[in-house]
């Protein structure tokens, strides 16, 4: 198929087609610039070198939401196996990469609220790493200041650090009323009630946990309900 450049540009019809092409390209760019469509902020920071190619590929494929979820699954897998790191002073730190893994999820999908809430919950309530939890929530707030539940969690974590349990309970009670509340937070709140001897309320929350999509929490809730029934005389209907 020989291509005759001279003949190509000398044709009037071709020139009209080319003119229309440039016109439409120009207008499409105008539409693109002025479009109010929701967009992610630019992906400009690679937090973990070992996942750099994966994360960049996901961004290039337009899969930031899926990327956030896959990264969250990797976070859960990291959490499911024992991990520890020994620093130069000889102290051991369990799960040292929890914060950076959570932030990686956030770098892919900065509006993945569940991931921030879950990550902060794990850091604060199971690892006692309050400052890291607040750091994570602060990042969530930076991306989405209108999502006020971050502040609710931050409040609960601050009170926990000050050992003001009644205020922690108050805030967590508010948190568990929302459908996007991680099962882990419900489990923690039920645990606090059980520790305080408020078995009835603990049982109510464990019953709620039976509807969780996470099978581990269903198993934990069932075991706790059996324990409450057997050892503390709570009658379950």
């Amino acid at each position: 198929m020989p291509f005759n450049q001279k003949a190509f540009f000398s044709s009037r019809k071709t020139n009209i087609y080319l003119g229309l092409t440039f016109l439409f390209i120009f207008f499409s760019r105008i539409v693109s610039v002025y479009s109010p469509s929701s967009r992610f902020p630019p992906f400009h920071k690679i937090l973990m070198k070992e996942y750099a190619s994966l994360d960049t590929s996901l961004v290039l494929m337009g899969l930031r939401r899926v990327g956030g979820e896959l990264s969250f699954i990797q976070y859960l897998q990291y959490l499911s196996a024992p991990q520890k790191e020994i620093n130069e002073k000889g102290n051991t730190k369990p799960y040292p990469r929890l914060l950076v893994l959570s932030k990686r999820t956030g770098s892919l999908n900065p509006y993945y609220h569940y991931s921030y809430l879950f990550g902060a919950g794990v850091l604060a309530f199971t690892m006692n790493r309050h400052s890291e939890a607040i750091d994570l929530l602060a990042e969530g707030i930076r991306w989405d200041p209108s999502f006020w539940r971050y502040r609710l969690y931050a409040g609960a974590i601050a009170f926990r650090e000050k050992k003001e349990t009644h205020k922690v309970i108050e805030l967590l009670e508010s948190a568990i009323t929302y459908p996007d509340c991680p099962s882990m937070i419900k489990n923690i709140l039920a645990g606090i009630y059980k520790k305080q001897g408020r078995y009835l309320r603990a049982a109510e929350i464990y019953i709620q946990l039976l509807n969780s999509r996470d099978k581990n929490y269903i198993i934990k809730a069932t075991q706790n309900l059996h324990d409450l029934e057997k050892n503390h005389g709570i009658i379950l209907q």
């Binding site: 539409v31 479009s35 469509s37 929701s38 939401r65």
Partner: peptide, 23 residues
């Protein structure tokens, strides 16, 4: 990104009909 609603539907922004019109 003008048409990538699948990835950004949880983000605050105009109603999807408006986004679809632009897209």
């Amino acid at each position: 990104s003008v048409m990538n609603y699948r990835d950004v539907f949880t983000l605050a922004g105009p109603h999807w009909t408006q986004q679809f019109l632009w897209g």
